[in-house]
């Protein structure tokens, strides 16, 4: 069963990675999305927008709680990913096979995909707090995950595992509210004291 899954994973990988090197424009776009910084930082800035986008203070307070949960989800998924990495040692595709490599050679294990875990943690956590705004997180997450396979540094299975970890972490953080409640309460206290400090000055 495991062999069958690994073969399927490799077949899918060949199919997607086989698209690389055919079109210069597509290659450069995928290289850009594969970048370690472009998508993760853009998602980080989207979280800042999420924190400030409300129209009233009541909305701001909900958004602040959502942002704290996003960061907790990212932290939890990173911890779970480290745990999986210590247990499962899957080499990168370019180690065992001939691939169209458009990226530098990462030295860590392939399973699960670190970028997919991080970017989908942003999306799933935002989705569980604010359905409407969360869709802005999805295209960058999908593009980055796809680009990692396209550029030859991850198998599709790594990406799927990362997505699953992200979903599980987001679900845990949102389901088990006791994890985030103290941080949300502290942040709301600070927000309340600062934003209600009104004065008539000149």
């Amino acid at each position: 069963m495991l062999d069958w899954l690994l073969n399927l994973d490799y077949a899918l990988f060949r199919c997607l990675n086989g698209l690389a090197g055919r079109n210069a424009l597509l290659d450069s776009s995928m290289k850009a999305f594969c970048n370690d910084h472009l998508v993760p930082f853009t998602l980080g800035f989207l979280v800042l927008v999420m924190a400030l986008k409300g129209r009233r203070r009541a909305e701001d307070r909900e958004n602040l709680a959502a942002v704290i949960r996003v960061f907790l989800t990212v932290a939890l998924s990173a911890a779970l990913m480290q745990l999986v990495i210590t247990l499962v040692h899957r080499p990168r595709p370019f180690v065992d096979h001939e691939v169209n490599l458009l990226f530098y050679r990462p030295v860590d294990w392939s399973f699960p995909s670190n970028p997919a875990t991080a970017t989908f943690s942003f999306f799933f956590s935002a989705f569980l707090s604010d359905r409407k705004f969360s869709w802005y997180f999805l295209p960058p997450a999908i593009l980055m995950s796809f680009a990692r396979v396209f550029c030859g540094v991850h198998y599709p299975g790594d990406v799927l595992a990362g997505m699953f970890l992200a979903l599980f972490s987001a679900w845990m953080v949102h389901r088990l509210r006791f994890l985030s409640r103290p941080f949300v309460a502290a942040a709301l206290q600070v927000e309340s004291r600062l934003r209600s400090a009104l004065s008539l000055r000149e």
């Binding site: 009233r56 203070r57 600062l194 934003r195 209600s196 400090a197 004065s199």
Partner: peptide, 25 residues
Amino acid sequence: PESMTLGDSLRSNTPWDALKVLLGT
């Protein structure tokens, strides 16, 4: 009355003004 908030200091007060009030309390 709905949210029981007192307003939003950022709408017209600078953060320094708000900090002074906060210290005053």
